[in-house]
Every structure is written in structure tokens, then in C-alpha cells.
Amino acid sequence: MTPRTPADTGPAAASGQLSRLRSPHLLSAADLTPEEVLLILDTAGAMREVGTRPIKKVPALRGKTVVNLFFEPSTRTRTSFEIAEKRLSADALNIAASGSSVVKGETLADTARNLEAMAPDIIVIRHQASGACHLLADICSSRIVNAGDGMHEHPTQALLDLLTIRDHKPDFARLKVAIIGDLLHSRVMRSNVRLLTMLGADVWVCGPPTMMPAGIELQGVTATSSIDAAVEGADVVMMLRIQLERMSGHFFPSLREYHELFGLSAARLARARPDVIVMHPGPLNRGVEIASEVADGPYSVILEQVSNGVALRMAVLYLIAGVSEGVD
């Protein structure tokens, strides 16, 4: 705004600290550099203050149109994006698959071209097909934010998980993080593994052998089917939801047996560090992957994850909007 000297942008700019993202899209956590991840987390930290004001709204995205295009059911993520958009004064528009022309047989590409004709500035998309957001980014000139694509990635969830972890344990490189549950179907796991290993955390993944993605060790994690080994000495225990809706076959004999072998109980959690935090991306299957006493217990930060989601998504939308067209 005020075209002053470069020095006026502050000591952060002078010291070479990153102040913008390189890409106008957030499609995959794998596309981010560690500096970009920290920029997003720092920006989210500052965004939290907006939520504490009497008037929880700032004009940063005034006059910008954001379309939330959700082909899968979602309460938390969609609401979280919508609140974030409204707090930034963007015009938010929700399109759910059930109420749209998708049920009439329109393809994703056609839906995207039609949306494109209405020139939204940002499209937030959730789709059951991995890579749907990439297709959209290729077709549309809008900026695209991935809100979950199939079994591929869910970058904003992983980023809000990192924000929550950092509130409690600021040095990622010293952490043992155990990610436990339905690894095969989990885009939350994939995004988290990418970011946590990038920041130097010791990441363990644990689940039934039938739900262990092939070659997961190549991502720099330790894979195990023993929940006790995964939880032992962990700083962070991240539980994943059993995604019954994505399962095409039988991965384990019964939910009860799953809980016995892979559910997080208070007794199991005692193996972790005394200051462990327990996370879950929601929605919870109580008594399946996590016992109620743990989900509601003193180590649980599950609701903090939800509050952090709004600030994190504000940060992502704001930073995405600030990327200049045609400038790398």
C-alpha cells in the first residue's frame, strides 16, 4: 500500500525470512518447503487473534469469491473453511455434490469449467478421487485449495495438526510422533507424514498389516503393527478414524477386535511420555480407535485442533490470495 523503502517491511524481511508462498494453489503438503510450512504456521498464529475480537472479521479478502466445492460429506472441514472465509470478509459459496448438477451426471471437468465461467477467485475442493484438485488447477484460472482428495492428501488438516503440536511442543525435531489406525485409507496420515518428516520428527506409523500401505517406510517413517511399540515414549499420539465408507473389503474381523488390538486405551497411553498429547482429526468412532476416557481425557487436544483449523485456514486463504499471478 504505502510504497516506502524495502526497510519498512521490517526486520523479518531484512533477515530474509520468507513472507509469501511460491504457488497460488495448495494441492499437496509435499509441494511445500519447510520455510513455507513455518510461514503458514506463523501466519495462523497471528490469525488466531482475530477470533478473540468482539468483531471477528477483517477485510483482507473483501470482494473475493471463494467457492467451497464438496463432493464428499463434511461438517468440520467445510464449516471451518466457511468460517475462515467469512472472517476474512470473502464471499463464500457452498456447493455440495448432493444438491448440484453432479447428481445429474456432470463430470468434474465440466463442473469446473462452468464454475470457472463465473470467475471465483479461490476454489476449495474436496473430492473422493485422488488428484481431483490437480485436475481443477489445470483447467481453472482460480486458485485451488485441496480440502481432501481421495486417499491422497488433506494438507490443511496436517497443517492444523502441526499448529496444535507446536503450541505444546515447539521443536519438531525432538518429537516422536505415533500415527495409529487406518493408514491405508488415510489422506490425513499421508499429509502429516510428509510435513512431520520434513521438519525432522521421528514418525512411527502403526496399523493392522492389512491396512499398511506398501512401501510406507520409503517415506522415512518406522512402520509397525504393535501399538505398544508405537506409543512407547511418544510425544504425540495421532489416532486415525476407521473409514468404513472407504473400505471395499474385510480388513479386520470385527470392530471389537480392532479396538482390542489397535484402539487407544488409557492403559496403553501410559507407555507414552507423561506430557503426551493425543490427537484425532475427527469424526471420532468412540470405542473403536479411541476409548472415550482418552478422547475426553486430560491429554486430549482434539478440540484445540478444531479451533486451530479456522485460524490455519484463514492463513492459507490469505497467503494463497497474496501470491502474485505469473510470478514464481
Binding site: 513472507s19 509469501r20 510461514l39 479478502l61 477467485d121 490469505y318 490470495a321 497474496g322
Partner: peptide, 14 residues
């Protein structure tokens, strides 16, 4: 916010 084509996006502070 979406107008300048060059120069740094200012860092958001508290």
C-alpha cells in the same frame, strides 16, 4: 492484497 505484482507480501504479525 491481490494488486501488487512484485515486492514482498507483508508478514502478518500479532
Amino acid at each position: 492484497l491481490m494488486r501488487h505484482t512484485v515486492g514482498p507480501q507483508p508478514l502478518l504479525r500479532h
